[in-house]
Design a protein around this nucleic acid. Structure first.
Lengths: 257, 257
DNA sequence: CATATTTTCTTGTATTTTGATAATTTTAGT
DNA sequence: ACTAAAATTATCAAAATACAAGAAAATATG
């Protein structure tokens, strides 16, 4: 273990399932002497990436919240998309969860979400949640714009049931790309149906999607055109807004240098 | 520069005011050779604490968002307090911003907020924002419960205009402690008036406050008893809920070990 | 207050980091 | 597609630091 890895390995132990650890537990888990872990944890506490909790446990610290706020204020995708999610939700014909997601390594991460007040189900789509790459409209709208070797690399880690499953996947992807949007049902959460369109910005290296998720029981086929129209127009708005933010950043850097 | 410091120094350059940096800019700022910075930045990008943006700029990366979500799901204060903020807001007689804040080093940080839909002003109180330690009801409700050497250490860095200013500060603090709540006007944002009560949990090491902030023009003296009653009762609810969460954690660790 | 637990300190040795420079890759403008 | 400039990675020996193991200190617990 060297470099940032030694810190990152410890930080990555803190998960949704297990959000507090003692030094000895970390030491066991990473098979590293406790004296070493004590030193590293102390450093992380000093930097407020960890903080000590009751009973000699440690948990993630406030530095994370601080940096997260800076991302919220400055990430072009979040900045451009966040304000539109509520509007999109209000124009949908039925109760919905609306999500802005982006590629994150070889997973997809939700970076902003808005749920209408009376939406019944709990969805997997929450800000910060990592989603599977090949399931769900949200993810597929992102990868449908990726081609060639990039797509190959991305899917390298994914396993399909069989060749047939794989073929169907690629066929659907091509089809979706032709239509311009994605629709999946029950792939991520049972009883939910999702629609998504891609959001891209080559200059900023943004590979993302905008999606609306509904309860299957609420959904009627005649809703589909409206849903699609809303998604498409808001995706366009967001893309335009991202470009504007990009120009602002450019200007800012030119002026200050 | 050694240990985590070298990573932390770079991460801490990314701020609200300046959220993207090039390697050369970082190198200039930290007076460190660019070959070194390239290496460190690459490590941080690999761990997704940074990501590359357009024009060879870097910005904070998605790992932050991921960890922030884990905090939201697991931090006892956020978990206990978040659900009550909206309820508190709805019981207030006028439009309000409602904030849960806690001590963070020698600053105060807002960890959850809820603003009523028609609140006019923009307040400084947003989740993740660092607030001054000695100004504003939110902060003062926290420090009014801290005594002796702890208080001394905490205030060591703060500067008062003069001795008179300092005396008034301590007199007010004592007074507030007697009353059980804090009230300040225009100390953080002009035109706003804030009320706050402390939230404490010795076992979990939580030093926090719950506050409601109003537009001064909306506020009438007859509102004060209701505001105070609401804050006090919700603070109690949150404290109780924190205890319950604490017990849950205890049980969880006992069962799993 | 005594004991158990957690945390920090100490030390020689092994490992890692550093930074100047060179080499390579990427980008942007014809 | 070509070229020049810029951005990024690779190399390597010197310098700095992390490491492990146990001892010591501090802190929590009953």
């Amino acid at each position: 273990m060297s470099g940032f890895t030694r810190y990152n390995k410890i930080l990555n132990l803190f998960s949704e399932q297990r959000s507090s650890w003692t030094v000895l537990e970390i030491s066991d888990e990473l098979k590293t002497p406790s004296s070493t872990i004590y030193r590293i944890v102390r450093e992380l506490v000093l930097a407020e990436f960890l903080e000590s909790a009751a009973g000699s446990y440690f948990r993630l610290g406030p530095a994370i919240i601080k940096f997260n706020r800076i991302i919220n204020l400055s990430d072009p995708l979040v900045k451009a998309g966040q304000p539109f999610l509520k509007k999109l939700a209000n124009e949908n014909p039925i109760e919905s969860v609306n999500v802005l997601a982006r590629l994150y390594g070889n997973k997809v991460m939700c970076v902003a979400d808005y749920k209408t007040p009376f939406f019944k189900n709990n969805t997997s789509y929450h800000k910060g949640k990592l989603m599977p790459l090949i399931y769900g409209a949200t993810s597929r709208a992102i990868i449908m714009k990726i081609v060639g070797k990039n797509l190959e690399d991305l899917l390298k880690q994914e396993t399909f049931y069989d060749d047939n499953d794989k073929d169907t996947f690629f066929k659907n992807l091509k089809n979706d790309n032709k239509k311009g949007y994605c629709k999946t049902e029950g792939q991520v959460d049972k009883g939910l149906i999702g629609f998504a369109v891609p959001i891209n910005n080559k200059k900023l290296g943004i590979e993302a999607s905008l999606s609306s998720i509904f309860n299957s029981i609420d959904f009627l086929p005649e809703h589909e055109p409206t849903i699609y129209a809303n998604l498409t127009s808001y995706a366009l708005l967001i893309e335009r807004y991202i470009n504007q933010i990009f120009d602002d950043i450019q200007n800012y850097h030119q002026i200050s240098s």
